[in-house]
Computed example of a mutant assay.
Amino acid sequence: MENFDQKEAFRQALTGWFNAEKRDLPWRQTKDPYKIWVSEVMLQQTRVDTVIPYYERFIDAFPTIHDLANAPEDVLLKKWEGLGYYSRARNLQAGVREVVEQYNGIVPDNRPTISSLKGVGPYTAGAILSIAYGKPEHAVDGNVMRVLSRILLITEDIAKPKTRKIFEAAVTNLIDHEDPSSFNQGLMELGALICTPTSPKCLLCPVRDFCQAFHEGKERALPVKTKAKKTKEIQFLSLVIQNEQGKWLMEKRPKGGLLADMWQFPLVESLTDDVKNVYGIEKASLFLEFKHIFSHLTWNIKCMAAHSTKADDLSENCRWFSEEEMEELPLPVPMQKIKNEVMK
């Protein structure tokens, strides 16, 4: 698409379709860069339908950038509970605090500065700059790479990080300088609704006339993407322990790593005598088995119910909680599943 007239016709077809057919999403009702930032972080690795209620609750709880900057971490994690990838929430808050401390609460409007913020990568930077500030900046995610690989017949492997540069250059070349927000969102929307991974709806596509893959019958062969390595599997025993006062034993995860600082029913590899002594239990009974899949590993969890006569002398990361108190704890999804099963 080297011809100016062809590029302009492509832009008009894409932005015209987007403005006529776009989904009514809550973050599309604002140009506030903070709220757009929140939505873009939530949308990473999470479906739009799933994000909507989380976004609305989150903005209700933290309506301004200062509210989020000042929020205690446990409150932040509780509002994020269920979305997963909790490092996204922590990085978002860290980035927001930088904006409050260094830029008087005003999200930077240029790529070098906004990209220096914690957790803001090339895609998030481009999305905020184009949608909130109307800057002609590329915002390349998986949807955009899929769409452009077909339109421009790009055959490089999109699983390789270096390939992103090819697509960023393509967007920079094609982007509508008059309406970069609709252009970037149009590419994303096209990938979500029409130019889908396995069954692209080519007959409904507003830019089909410009699509090289469609004209060559290669739309289902693109994008080229090598398969990820098989995920690692880990076996865990989750101990659901109640004391004589009816409280439940919970342990706080370490400050770093997966699900950092969240609460869980104690996880062990097996129910050894040492484990029984540590938690003050004599016997335990199996009541639930399930697997939880993270992006890079799978937990196979067996859940055992037990009673403990041990009132104290527990490790510093363990505490007893009433059922009401547990409602305030930030729990990862597998622990929510166990809690819901226990407290039916």
Rank of each mutant, 00 (worst) to 15 (best):
75 V>L: 08
31 K>P: 04
85 Y>F: 14
46 T>R: 10
88 R>N: 08
39 S>M: 03
83 L>W: 04
33 P>W: 08
35 K>A: 04
49 D>Y: 09
100 V>K: 00
101 E>F: 01
77 L>C: 13
70 N>C: 02
85 Y>V: 12
46 T>Q: 07
52 I>F: 15
69 A>K: 03
91 N>G: 10
86 Y>I: 11
51 V>T: 10
68 L>E: 05
57 R>A: 15
61 A>H: 08
30 T>Y: 07
63 P>A: 07
94 A>N: 09
58 F>S: 11
46 T>E: 01
81 E>W: 00
59 I>M: 10
33 P>D: 09
63 P>V: 05
68 L>H: 07
35 K>R: 13
73 E>F: 00
33 P>G: 11
103 Y>F: 15
40 E>Y: 12
71 A>L: 09
39 S>A: 15
47 R>H: 13
26 P>W: 00
45 Q>W: 10
53 P>K: 01
97 R>C: 00
90 R>L: 15
52 I>Y: 01
73 E>S: 11
64 T>N: 09
103 Y>H: 15
85 Y>I: 10
93 Q>M: 08
26 P>N: 07
30 T>D: 13
27 W>E: 12
74 D>E: 15
85 Y>Q: 13
41 V>W: 07
58 F>H: 05
97 R>A: 03
80 W>K: 05
50 T>Y: 01
53 P>F: 02
49 D>N: 14
38 V>W: 14
53 P>N: 07
47 R>D: 13
87 S>Y: 07
76 L>H: 10
92 L>I: 09
33 P>I: 05
29 Q>L: 13
24 D>K: 04
87 S>M: 10
100 V>H: 01
84 G>A: 12
76 L>T: 08
103 Y>L: 02
72 P>T: 02
69 A>R: 00
41 V>C: 02
52 I>L: 12
78 K>Y: 08
101 E>N: 14
77 L>H: 12
51 V>H: 13
42 M>I: 07
30 T>F: 04
88 R>S: 11
67 D>S: 12
59 I>D: 05
55 Y>V: 04
96 V>Q: 06
49 D>W: 02
35 K>V: 06
85 Y>P: 08
66 H>Q: 06
60 D>C: 11
89 A>I: 03
84 G>M: 08
33 P>H: 04
23 R>T: 02
66 H>E: 02
38 V>H: 13
68 L>F: 10
62 F>A: 01
36 I>T: 10
